[in-house]
Design a protein around this nucleic acid. Structure first.
Length: 105
DNA sequence: AGAGTGACTCATA
DNA sequence: CTATGAGCCACTC
């Protein structure tokens, strides 16, 4: 048995790091991949670390909306990063999930 | 052990 | 559209 504790964090990071450039994943998707059902913990785990090594900007909510409380510098930074990777926005805070939604790993 | 919190999601009104 | 309630589960105190 692996130790749990903040193992959840590691799982989330593992998944998020897997997200290819130009793609985005939803909290619910990541939650499912880490073996949980709670999307909240995913966002919580991301915000709890804010590690620049993790493309947390590629994680958005179910509608592609970026987070209001994004850890780096608000949703503007998140959007800037995504646009920089070629992700299209259909609104100021909304990503075009129809194109960039992450497929099943 | 219990209460509070949270970058979510869904249902209802 | 907004607001509220519930579900969810790990973390902190």
């Amino acid at each position: 048995m692996l130790k749990r504790r903040s193992n959840f964090f590691t799982r989330v990071y593992k998944i998020v790091e897997k997200i290819p450039r130009g793609k985005v994943a939803t909290y619910g998707q990541v939650a499912a991949l880490v073996g949980s059902r709670d999307a909240r913990k995913v966002g919580w785990a991301l915000h709890a670390n804010t590690s620049t090594k993790i493309p947390c900007h590629r994680v958005v909510n179910k509608e592609g909306m970026v987070a209001e409380n994004f850890a780096f510098d608000g949703w503007r930074e998140q959007k800037a990063r995504l646009v920089s990777e070629g992700v299209k926005f259909i609104s100021e805070k909304q990503v075009d999930l129809a194109i960039h939604r992450l497929q099943v790993l």
